[in-house]
């Protein structure tokens, strides 16, 4: 993997502008390589004081390249209003749009899932791809101040009455967020998907910590997989869930961002699955530094 896109050009690029360095560097690469005619850059108003410079930078870059860019403010604290804005924007996409790319590098998972849901509902003939840039490195801490986990709008599954719950989480570096989801849903069965590899101290910060934290629950199932490959992780999710197909199933992703695409693909294969988002009220201003490898692929 390197930082240059090998997939083709697109009609529209959708991104969420954050304050991270990898947003600006990655966006620059993508606009030049994918040559979209239209860019939509969302940003979250709660962090606009940090991301303003990057939002403005994106505008300047697009204008200099003759790409139409629209910026839209979203709110983390008003998910209903955010959904409506995403929906309105998708509805405004011209009917002749054929290729759409989601840059999920700094896009919250909830936004990824909601956008993909709305696009699937409204734009049935559009080919959707995603791009994701790893950072060069992560900060000392990533997020804090957890909000109450919530089911994603319209992707809240088909919940059967009198039926136990299975919770499958693709874990990340924050064991407390994993525990919080378990505590919230009190599932009969927990399945943890652990990312493989040594990147960013993964073996200690993720695998070892989760194994230690959940050692008491003898029933817990842990599986390993590569969350940077959504197709692989989707297959593993489907396999792991097969024995629990008669339970209510909730999925969540806290690990590498492309895992969220894997979760979405699992959902598309069975819309009775529910997807849960675990929000945070605070992010580290030094969340990451630098620009790492690019991961990209097809969503639909």
């Amino acid at each position: 993997m390197d930082s240059t896109s090998s997939l083709g050009e697109v009609d529209a690029l959708i991104t969420v502008a954050s304050w991270e360095e990898r947003f600006t560097k990655g966006f620059n690469n993508l606009v030049r390589s994918k040559k979209p005619t239209r860019v939509l850059a969302f940003y979250f108003e709660e962090y606009y004081k940090w991301s303003e410079q990057n939002v403005e930078g994106a505008k300047i870059l697009c204008e200099s390249l003759g790409v139409a860019i629209e910026t839209v403010a979203l709110s983390m604290s008003e998910p209903g209003s955010t959904w409506k804005k995403l929906n309105d924007w998708v509805m405004s996409i011209p009917a002749d749009t054929k290729e759409l790319c989601l840059d999920i590098t700094t896009m919250p998972r909830e936004t990824i899932w909601e956008l993909l849901y709305i696009i699937k509902q409204r734009l049935r003939n559009v080919h959707v791809t995603y791009t994701y840039y790893k950072p060069g490195n992560y900060g000392d801490w990533l997020s804090a101040e957890p909000g109450r986990p919530r089911l994603v709008y319209r992707m809240s599954g088909i919940i059967k009455l009198g039926t136990p719950t299975t919770l499958l989480i693709l874990t990340g570096f924050d064991v407390d967020r994993t525990k919080r989801l378990v505590r919230m849903y009190e599932p009969q069965q927990v399945i943890l998907g652990l990312q493989i590899g040594e990147q960013f101290g993964n073996e200690v910060k993720n695998i070892k910590k989760h194994k230690e934290a959940f050692t008491r629950d003898k029933k817990i199932i842990m599986f390993e997989g590569n969350q940077y490959d959504p197709n692989e992780i989707k297959s593993k999710i489907v396999d792991e869930l097969t024995p629990f197909k008669n339970t209510n199933i909730v999925l969540s992703s806290l690990g590498p961002k492309p895992g969220a695409i894997g979760i979405y693909k699992a959902y598309v294969s069975n819309p009775e699955l529910a997807i849960s988002y675990a929000p945070s009220g605070q992010y580290n201003k030094e969340y990451s530094e630098g620009l790492g490898d690019l991961f990209e692929g097809e969503v639909t």
Binding site: K84, L151, Y153, S156, I159, T165, M184, Y185, A274, S276
Partner: peptide, 11 residues
Amino acid sequence: TPLAFKNEYDL
């Protein structure tokens, strides 16, 4: 139960 956590009411 996850039924209690559904929140499409917002929409």
